[in-house]
């Protein structure tokens, strides 16, 4: 790992100021991606700004129609939150499928979203639930947040502070894990908001996206059988050692059907 200056601010404002003062700063949240990347000498920030000391970025707030999760909330805190489990169980379940226990004890929702790994789980929730991503400056609609491979709507220095998830009538998430890394080869979250269906897909493309074709069909007929005839085009899908684009497209359909079965049961 290359040397860097380490900072641990206590407010978002201080963090941003530190970021702006440094040559090439990076924010450090849970570090589950950034630290291995730095170990492999593939990232070399001059300054590392640790967000763990910022109280305003922590905490879970559960209302009847909305669950708000501080960006520094660790995956296991979401997975084991009784309040989230009761109001938005799909989010707790999804968080419990990320990485492994040790990773869930460190990794944070804000870090995961800001990184926009194409195979991360949380983006499926942001898209599928139509969440709003808050930063120190603005609120970004979930649909606008993920832009490309490891690219988000965040501007340099912008920090994800909290995420608001609307509470659907019901929802379900299915994941086909990469057998080696346990990231999602494909993950599909289906949410039913009083009959309006949203489908968030992760793993398949360069970044998480709404499967509008599936939504269209399911909005007409919320039935697993309705998915049978649907074509999931694989244009632009990821293709690697573990899964071709064609196979990923097939998995989107299978995971969607299984999620729908869960949702309906």
């Amino acid at each position: 790992m290359y040397p860097f200056n380490y900072h641990k601010p206590e407010t978002v404002a201080d963090a941003v100021a530190l970021f702006n003062d440094a040559d090439d700063a990076m924010y450090l949240s849970g570090g589950m991606t950034l630290i291995p990347t730095m170990k492999q000498r593939l990232a070399a920030p001059t300054d590392l700004i640790d967000l763990s000391g910022i109280a305003e970025m922590t905490g879970i707030d559960v209302a009847a129609d909305k669950v708000t999760v501080g960006a520094f909330t660790r995956h296991n805190d979401v997975a084991t939150s009784g309040a989230i489990g009761e109001t938005l169980p799909v989010l707790a379940q999804l968080a419990g499928l990320i990485g492994d226990n040790q990773v869930r004890n460190r990794g944070t929702i804000g870090g995961s979203l800001a990184n926009s790994d194409p195979a991360a789980d949380y983006p499926a929730a942001v898209i599928g639930l139509g969440a709003t991503v808050h930063t120190q400056e603005r609120a970004i609609a979930g649909d606008e947040f993920f832009q490309d491979l490891f690219e988000t709507a965040l501007q340099p220095g912008e920090i994800v502070t909290r995420i608001e998830f609307p509470v659907p009538t019901r929802a379900a998430y299915r994941k086909f894990p990469n057998p080696a890394s346990r990231y999602a080869v494909v993950g599909v979250l289906i949410a039913d908001f009083n009959g309006a269906i949203r489908v968030g897909v992760t793993g398949a493309g360069p970044c998480a996206f709404r499967a509008s074709g599936l939504e269209e069909v399911l909005n007409q007929n919320l039935d697993p059988e309705a998915l049978e005839g649907v074509e999931v085009p694989d244009a632009g899908f990821n293709s690697d050692l573990h899964a071709s684009a064609e196979y990923r497209a097939h998995l989107v359909k299978v995971m969607a059907r299984r999620a729908l079965n869960d949702l309906l049961s």
């Binding site: 291995p36 640790d50 296991n76 040790q102």
Partner: peptide, 27 residues
């Protein structure tokens, strides 16, 4: 390992199991 996969470095940090190869000393 060097990719946070193997778990041989697991310790408890403030009561939680973590991979000590993926925690910086200042953290």
């Amino acid at each position: 390992c060097d990719t946070s996969q193997c778990g041989a470095c697991t310790v408890h940090l403030d009561g939680r199991a973590v991979k000590a190869c993926t925690v910086l000393a200042p953290q």
